[in-house]
Design a protein around this nucleic acid. Structure first.
Length: 258
DNA sequence: GAATATGTTTAAAT
DNA sequence: CATTTAAACATATT
């Protein structure tokens, strides 16, 4: 699925392609994950101008007109696909936006779990790229859960999923099994830096790779996370273990604190 | 065909 | 009671 870097680049691309255009038609094929009726959603958004697309945590927020906001979460398998007027829709379409000029955007999801939320709740969770170092350190000291679980907890920090959690923890040389409040200050500071380092590098790599077009997520440049990756960049064997039902990939280079 | 991958919600355990 | 962990959800891909 898409994590913070993918979504950040998606937002850039969507702004480039659709910002300032009027939504002529909104088609809803699966309404199960909407928080309002299809009719209400269409009524609120159709004929409004798309002002901006922002990433908020793992969601995209589409701002229409003066005050309408649609939050979109792609969940496990959601994808965004550009569609043109007379083109047939991609499989598993949930929504399709048709803008002036004959260009459009389809949201697909084979699992049908992607959610579209009109007027999403105000986000009070700090974003992984915005959180202050002092707040991050304070957060770690309050929690006795595994560090990887903490990084992925969207109620604590926004934007990091299973893949990037592994990449970040390797970069910081901290074992994913470490207990958050047992991580010494020095290592916690390094972890804080690794979060922005790893995410920023991924964002710029994806910008380059996607060339301003909408594509799926890219993980070609993952160093650690992936069943087919055998060795870390430093040549150490990668091992794996389930943490809360998700596979964590890591190496012996990573220090365990706990 | 069983195992794997994935994020969130809900249920269970500590 | 608060906090942490496991299970459930569903299906394309390996």
């Amino acid at each position: 699925m898409a994590e913070l870097p993918d979504l950040t680049v998606f937002a850039l691309t969507l702004n480039r392609k659709f910002k300032g255009k009027r939504l002529k038609k909104l088609e809803i094929f699966i309404a199960k994950k909407l928080n309002v009726t299809s009719l209400e959603l269409q009524k609120r958004l159709e004929n409004q101008v798309l002002e901006k697309v922002d990433r908020v945590g793992k969601t995209l927020q589409f701002r229409f007109g003066k005050s309408e906001v649609l939050g979109l979460h792609l969940m496990l398998r959601g994808e965004l696909k550009e569609v043109s007027k007379d083109q047939q829709l991609p499989p598993n379409a949930i929504l399709s936006f048709h803008f002036t000029g004959g260009i459009g955007l389809a949201v697909t999801d084979s699992l049908k779990q992607a959610t579209a939320t009109l007027k999403p709740a105000e986000n009070i969770v700090p974003d992984a790229l915005d959180i202050k170092e002092s707040d991050f350190i304070a957060l770690l000291s309050k929690k006795s859960k595994k560090i990887k679980t903490l990084l992925m907890d969207q109620k604590l920090i926004g934007g990091i999923g299973n893949s990037y959690a592994d990449e970040i923890l390797w970069d910081a040389r901290i074992s994913p099994l470490s207990i958050a409040n047992k991580i010494p200050n020095q290592a916690a500071k390094k972890l804080y830096k690794s979060i922005s380092d790893v995410l920023e590098i991924a964002i710029s790599a994806m910008k380059k790779e996607n060339k301003g077009e909408l594509r799926g997520e890219l993980r070609d440049f993952m160093n650690i996370h992936g069943a087919n990756i055998k060795k870390s960049p430093t040549g150490k064997r990668i091992q794996s273990e389930k943490i809360n039902g998700r596979t964590a990939y890591f190496t012996e280079e990573q220090n365990f604190y706990g």
